[in-house]
Design a protein around this nucleic acid. Structure first.
Lengths: 362, 362
DNA sequence: TTGTAGGCGTTATCAG
DNA sequence: CTGATAACGCCTACAA
């Protein structure tokens, strides 16, 4: 049944009655060949259903035409979209994509790079948990393997496709401040393993400081808390006087709205909510989500383009951050007058659930 | 600067002062070696930062330890999640994932299989636009390449990880009917290129027929119509008397809600809406979406597991469909009394926007 | 216990 | 124009 054996160029040459070199030349349009030979080889290849083995080619040519790509998880649409962008650009240039995901685990992501480089990829496109402390990444670079980052802020001389998380977060702080919010919080999942979250908090925090406002509370949620609106409501309840939340992604922002309703309160009257990422669905909601819109697919495309440039030896420079856009939505409003008086005596931010971490700018 | 050349087992052998065979035996724990040799080889490998070339191995061993995976698009979270599931299972078994996406283009997806097989993948995990008319797929199977499908209903003797779209859709029809809806519609994007959509419509249609209800209207949207609530509203407006919509995915269902509000009507009082897929966010909405919950990641995992079984020569049988679950939500209710009288004279379904296609069950 | 040599599929070189 | 042949990195008989 199964013609289990694969057809090689040798088979083609034999069938065409010529040497393998000639067959190779014909099939690759490389080097001179007689019309007669062309004819016979092409027919033989056709008949046999021959196609080149990328492995043989890679071994001989030293290039695998394969790019390794690592992201925390494809279950996060932001990364999935970016990978889709990468894939589009790369496949247009004849490259294949070898993908891997770390599940937000710093060891796994180091390990993944080892595996990817063992596969002899021609380049790497990465979003890592801890790029700065990955030995494998250092080694890859030392070996001269082209590396292009996505989502990360500029780091150490790596080229990266990113949005300016710090600036975007400052923009959110500005919107809050302009409306009169003083008691704010930043909500994050996996704060420790995401430089993006940390930079967003840093920017948010910096702008509050610059305006002489109280520091925003920093709240890191567990997976369970983020997915269970009841639990989330419990946490929000501990934050008396809170009037505005900046969530580190849109899912969290939507969960916050759900939790708020559960508490018998209203968005935005009782609590303003702003997200991050700008997922499509946010616009379609009953109450459109205020958020920072970014373009993950563009990030993927830029990272891929940069890598392609490196591969063909072009000059490569860090490109400026991709633009972000504040989408107004309907989840952001002035705080209630009374809440501006409420709890004014209490300290802000409350110590509960607060976290200390080293931030970009102290 | 860059130690551009890669280190091979030859380098290790030379540095350790032994033959390559010994080095290979030590590093692979295959065959007998002296303690002394082990020592030296391991040290040499360590010092040199040696790691095996997967290409050399693949060429010699006839197995690339790479699996090809094709989906329509990673920008669709349903597929992205499935791929994440695939990736988890496969990487646990030591395989890498080569991915490709077709952008819902039947030619591209045929082409992708050619490329993937040229890369000498050990197996294929696929969700295609037109599996039944892909020459490359036929050829891959003829060559004995293990193939595992995702999302597709059973087809032609291929093994597939799927939900029973037909049955799930019947369930929706049942819910509509039980509440008294008679004028219903099925909304789809890319009806022509998705056997899933077609089977859902078929099941929906079949159950309506079985109950002696009018046929549901079949509406295929363009990309533009699906993304622009104004356009969508325009289309819905043409369907007088419509009381319930079954959307072929949750995004569409949410878009329908937006469009309905735009028309000054309410969900579910004026229009009931049910989606498909059960994306997480649907539960968190102000008005939780009624939908068929499925588990794309489980589908990916099952497809990967099946492929793994095929690879190790185990007996493989088609597994039963993965379970789906009707999530009640809040977007489904009885039709208004008056709308049951309205337009009763008019014919249903209207001819506008209707489509004829060959369905699973006529 | 060890090393040599052949072969996996391809391309490039270099004589014919 | 053509066809052997030597790499490429690895594994594995087979011989020592």
């Amino acid at each position: 049944m199964e013609s289990r054996q694969k057809i090689t160029i040798k088979d083609v040459a034999r069938k065409a009655g010529c040497g393998i070199a000639t067959a190779s030349r014909v099939l690759n349009n490389s080097g001179p060949t007689s019309a007669d030979a062309r004819e016979r080889v092409k027919k033989a290849a056709q008949d046999l259903g021959f196609s080149f083995s990328a492995i043989g080619r890679a071994l001989q040519g030293g290039r695998s035409m394969t790019i390794g790509c690592l992201v925390p998880s494809l279950a996060n649409p932001v990364f999935a979209e970016a990978v889709q962008g990468v894939q589009e650009v790369l496949s247009g240039a004849g490259y294949q994509l070898l993908i891997s995901s770390s599940n937000y685990d710093g060891d796994a992501d180091n390990e993944a790079i080892v595996t990817l480089t063992a596969k002899e990829v021609d380049g790497l496109i990465l979003t890592m948990v801890g790029p700065e402390r990955s030995a494998a990444l250092k080694q890859a670079r030392a070996r001269g393997l082209p590396v292009s980052l996505m989502f990360h802020d500029p780091l150490d001389g790596f080229l990266t496709a990113h949005v300016d998380n710090f600036e975007a977060a400052r923009e959110v702080a500005r919107r809050f401040a302009d409306l009169g919010h003083t008691r704010t919080a930043f909500l994050s999942l996996r704060f420790a393993s995401s430089d993006r979250s940390r930079n967003r908090y840093a920017g948010f925090h910096a702008e509050c400081r610059a305006r002489g406002l109280p520091d925003p509370a920093l709240i890191e949620l567990t997976e369970a808390e983020a997915n269970d609106p009841e639990l989330l409501a419990g946490i929000l309840a501990t934050l008396g006087g809170l009037t505005a939340i900046f969530a580190s992604n849109d899912f969290l922002a939507i969960a916050v709205q759900k939790a708020t309703r559960l508490m018998g309160k209203n968005v935005p009257q009782d609590l303003s909510v702003v997200g991050f990422d700008g997922i499509e669905i946010g616009r379609l909601l009953d109450m459109p989500l205020a958020t920072i819109e970014t373009a993950p697919d563009a990030m993927g495309r830029q990272a891929a383009q940069t890598l392609l440039n490196m591969l063909q030896g072009d000059a490569c420079v860090q490109r400026p951050p991709l633009p972000f856009h504040f989408r107004a939505g309907a989840t952001l409003a002035r705080p209630r007058a009374e809440s501006r008086d409420d709890d004014q005596g209490a300290t802000w931010p409350p110590s509960v659930h607060s976290l200390k971490t080293d931030l970009k700018q102290g």
